[in-house]
Design a protein around this nucleic acid. Structure first.
Ligand SMILES: [Mn+2]
Ligand SMILES: [Mn+2]
Ligand SMILES: [Zn+2]
Ligand SMILES: [Zn+2]
Lengths: 145, 145
DNA sequence: TTCCTTATTGAAAAAATATTTCAATACGTT
DNA sequence: AACGTATTGAAATATTTTTTCAATAAGGAA
């Protein structure tokens, strides 16, 4: 529990005027230790090992809070819809269909496409989510056996 | 009820060996009449006007079925996660943050980006989901008043 | 440090969503 | 029209999420 890998995140919480509580730190840490999307239930399970008194309600509340602050984001996919992962501002990631491991990537070359869509549809575009899905190297290897 | 706008879809159902029942036709029609993502509950509500005996359970079952056949797809967004829309094979759409209207667009110029990600991460990429979000023309106008 | 104020918590209850079961029904075939 | 069976809706069950509220603990003041 004691110290998190990314103190930047805890500071962001503090600076936004929120208290740095044990339950919140636990949730934050769980998110940091997993790059796959985790369901609230799973975050709760892992979080309890860090903060035994942690309640599931608080997990939900904390995820809402972190998402609002941009410290966590929802991971969407056809299978698991409501899972969360630690996050910066980006919303571009590859997700492994087998083990659900998530890797973010910088998103270049989308600007042209966005401009085209804006023109074609008349929508103003203020954000986007690009999810690629496939198989991570490990799962590719495992599949070849 | 009687005839759907896109008989192609009903044929796809038949050809896959499924019966063309009133409840299924109702769900299909509701999806076709809305370009926004609809929740199962909302599909149920609208569907009942077409097939009064329709049950919510059947809506769930039918959505599963249609999604499997590629005739419907889940629409993901930060706000409403589990909604469905009529669909072809594509998974590229703009969604209006205000009225939730969805427009699909053809996706060009993603190939380079995907190749880059494949190289950088080692993932094999088999599919993708690109969701742009913003404001539709109507909602832009409404906002300027 | 101790004391205070109040944001935050967890348990419990309630609400909202989703799934399973099963007898009745309607679809498609003969 | 008659049949066999996939499909249905109601009810029960399970799962997920939200609300409420008294107890607690975080952070600032003394
Ligand atoms: Mn989703
Ligand atoms: Mn594409
Ligand atoms: Zn994998
Ligand atoms: Zn709109």
């Amino acid at each position: 529990m004691t110290h998190l890998k990314h103190p930047a995140m805890t500071q962001a919480l503090r600076e936004a005027g929120y208290r740095l509580t044990q339950p919140r730190l636990a949730v934050l840490q769980v998110l940091q230790e997993n790059d796959a999307g985790l369901s609230p239930e799973e975050i709760y399970r892992q979080g309890k090992t860090l903060c035994p008194t942690l309640g599931l309600v608080t997990v939900y509340r904390t995820l809402d809070l972190l998402a609002e602050l941009g410290l966590a984001r929802r991971v969407h996919s056809e299978q698991h819809c409501h899972s969360y992962a630690s996050a910066g501002a980006d919303r571009h990631y590859v997700i492994c269909q087998a083990c659900r491991r998530v890797i973010e990537f910088p998103c270049h070359g989308l600007d042209d496409l966005i401009a085209e869509v804006r023109q074609r549809t008349g929508y103003t575009i203020v954000g986007h989510l690009l999810e690629l899905s496939g198989l991570c190297p490990d799962c590719q290897a495992r599949q070849e056996m």
